[in-house]
Amino acid sequence: MTVEPTPRQLSAMQIDALREVGNIGAGNAAIALSQMVDKKVDLSVPKASLVPLVGVPGLVGGPETTVAGVYLSIAGDCSGSILLLLEKESASSLATLMVPGEARAVPELDVVKRSALQETGSILSGAYLMALGQLTGLLFKPSVPGFAMDMAGAIIDHVLVDLASTEDYVLVVETDFMVSGVKILGHLILFPDLGMLATILERLGVPFE
């Protein structure tokens, strides 16, 4: 028997706490990104929300939409995984900032650009995890990044398999980066294993009731 998931709502306090983590994490990430591209990076206040797994492809335009995904699994005090999804245009602009050259549609990005995106994803996810670790006192160890550019549904499939028997809700932190006038929209998605979210919220002082 599988245990039916109980849909959970985050309280306003919990959302604030997670957004604050997102803020600090995104701040770290923006500094890292700024150093990499040698340009000024502005970022918006991230939005944090709990989204059912099946709703994740909808965030980036549906399961058949082409997206770039960077995937890292997390070990340490809590396990889970983290996925950065970039819409096609954002992935393309980001890749071009990193590796100047002709901007091209995502499926045709060359190896160097793919690699640059993979590395960026790793740095952004790492910066977020570091903030989360500092604020909670928990240790999160990210794995090496995996990279794919394909249908959003297919990329999320991969993550789902890892989580199949655990949580049915994921934490999504939406961030907007502005890099010298170019807007880059990214979704950083934390897929917590069973109990991870509760542990994090407890450490942040805003436990589930």
Partner: peptide
């Protein structure tokens, strides 16, 4: 299919379990 070339699902702790999960 196998979506990620790098074994992204391979937990860092190499003694935890073989990297077969995803």
């Amino acid at each position: 299919a196998q979506m990620f070339e790098v074994p992204g699902s391979h937990k860092l702790d190499k003694f935890a379990k073989p990297p077969e999960s995803a």
